[in-house]
Deep mutational scan, measured.
Amino acid sequence: MPSETPQAEVGPTGCPHRSGPHSAKGSLEKGSPEDKEAKEPLWIRPDAPSRCTWQLGRPASESPHHHTAPAKSPKILPDILKKIGDTPMVRINKIGKKFGLKCELLAKCEFFNAGGSVKDRISLRMIEDAERDGTLKPGDTIIEPTSGNTGIGLALAAAVRGYRCIIVMPEKMSSEKVDVLRALGAEIVRTPTNARFDSPESHVGVAWRLKNEIPNSHILDQYRNASNPLAHYDTTADEILQQCDGKLDMLVASVGTGGTITGIARKLKEKCPGCRIIGVDPEGSILAEPEELNQTEQTTYEVEGIGYDFIPTVLDRTVVDKWFKSNDEEAFTFARMLIAQEGLLCGGSAGSTVAVAVKAAQELQEGQRCVVILPDSVRNYMTKFLSDRWMLQKGFLKEEDLTEKKPWWWHLRVQELGLSAPLTVLPTITCGHTIEILREKGFDQAPVVDEAGVILGMVTLGNMLSSLLAGKVQPSDQVGKVIYKQFKQIRLTDTLGRLSHILEMDHFALVV
């Protein structure tokens, strides 16, 4: 994948999101292997301009796509893939009243899908469409860049269908997702969380590099694949309309690839034109409109599966009536509230959605109805927002919020430890010299600072030695090549209790 991002070429006709291997024109390309080798690009942008032909009021008969309808489940399912879809609609009884809503608040519980998330729908649909058009064949390999849930859905379907599955996901995604993927037989590649989507090191860039190296491999490409919004247009939206008897006044959905909100909203605009569509985008993402909503100094966020630093091709923002931004604290607070007060075992993005819903639905009156999409299960986040310690460490809970008995030293300040200034190293000294210094002084790690004293990161003896043994660096290389740029900081005025929580999850903390 090139470091400079080429513009994806656009073909003359058809839909841009065809499933299957992508040609340089962004659509299915038939021909000899030699032709494909000559024409197939190194990668295709996940934010390529959409060429979708959908228009409100256009006859369904003019759609270029294969459409399906929700099917009634048999008493005995032939395999677990038949437990994807037909998820329950559940009334939220307490939270709406707590925040003064007059309307009825309903939750579409997508964590009841077989793999635990709304992404099971698009995973199965992308595979079925690729099999139907002859792209996927027995023994082929599926590769997908994902925040985890699409990966789980694909790995689940691949396990049943017999495909090899490789999932490329950023490091910030939970260990629970990784464990589930491994249990399903998927191979996992992790990428830096802070890598831009168009960087060769991003999950998108690495996935395309693997595709170019592995024979008979395919990126189904949830960011561009029409099967993504079509899955929701054909099934999720129809289920909502049936469950609500066609009567709903507002739908609120958090947005990642945009397939969920695009597919549902398009069908609702056709069948229930008075329904307002509300999009939820986390602070630090750029999906919301108008652009002024996205202006923030924050560039990272903890909530998973929603928000991006690019506009995915499948996201149709014209069908969203209003956007709201959400933050991590309210997302996790509301997710825990949904679990504790409503018994809905949902993930953090569901918290984002409901946090926005109780604001947006203030305009609705008694007798009206708001539906929220709860995308995934708490299963993926047992060591994250479900953990009091994690919430404390991230600053989303305060010590006084917890009532468990603490040891005698818990409320003492870090400054009472009488710490001395640490050994520091410059980023320009060599790895070999740094190892000598650390061994001589008896230290395992040291902060790396520039000549102005600005902290650049941390270097550890173990990481340097393993990097040297693996051949990633040489003793003569500058130590700046092996620094940890993500590390926890703590102030002298913070409590030892807070430091204790940090050290339970990290090997060190830097006192500043």
Rank of each mutant, 00 (worst) to 15 (best):
Y233K: 04
M89G: 05
A8G: 08
V180W: 00
I261H: 02
V255C: 12
E144R: 02
D249L: 04
G11F: 05
E29Q: 14
I240K: 01
D245G: 15
T68A: 15
R121T: 01
D129A: 09
S174A: 06
F197P: 07
S123W: 08
A48K: 10
C52S: 01
P16T: 08
A71P: 11
E110V: 00
R182T: 06
M250S: 00
I188M: 06
I214W: 02
E171F: 02
G85W: 06
L241P: 02
A8F: 09
M169D: 01
R224E: 09
A130N: 01
R132P: 09
E131D: 12
R224G: 07
G259K: 02
L77K: 07
A114M: 04
E9F: 10
K271E: 13
K271Q: 13
P74I: 07
K137A: 09
W54R: 06
A231W: 03
K39H: 05
R276N: 15
I261R: 01
A114G: 11
A38K: 11
K102M: 09
K98T: 10
N225D: 01
H17W: 13
R182H: 09
A130F: 03
R18T: 11
A265F: 00
E144S: 03
A195K: 07
V90K: 01
V90T: 07
V204M: 11
R182N: 04
M126R: 06
E171G: 05
C275Y: 02
V252N: 09
V180S: 08
Y223S: 02
E110C: 00
S174N: 02
T141R: 09
S73C: 13
A114D: 08
I261A: 08
A8E: 11
P192E: 08
L268P: 01
A253I: 03
T5P: 10
G259H: 00
L106S: 07
A38P: 10
N212Q: 13
A158W: 01
S23A: 11
G57N: 13
L101V: 06
A159H: 08
H67P: 04
D35L: 06
Q243M: 09
S27C: 13
E34D: 12
Q243A: 09
E29M: 11
K94C: 13
T193F: 07
G263L: 00
A48G: 13
F111I: 04
Q243V: 08
A157E: 06
L181S: 00
G116F: 13
G20C: 04
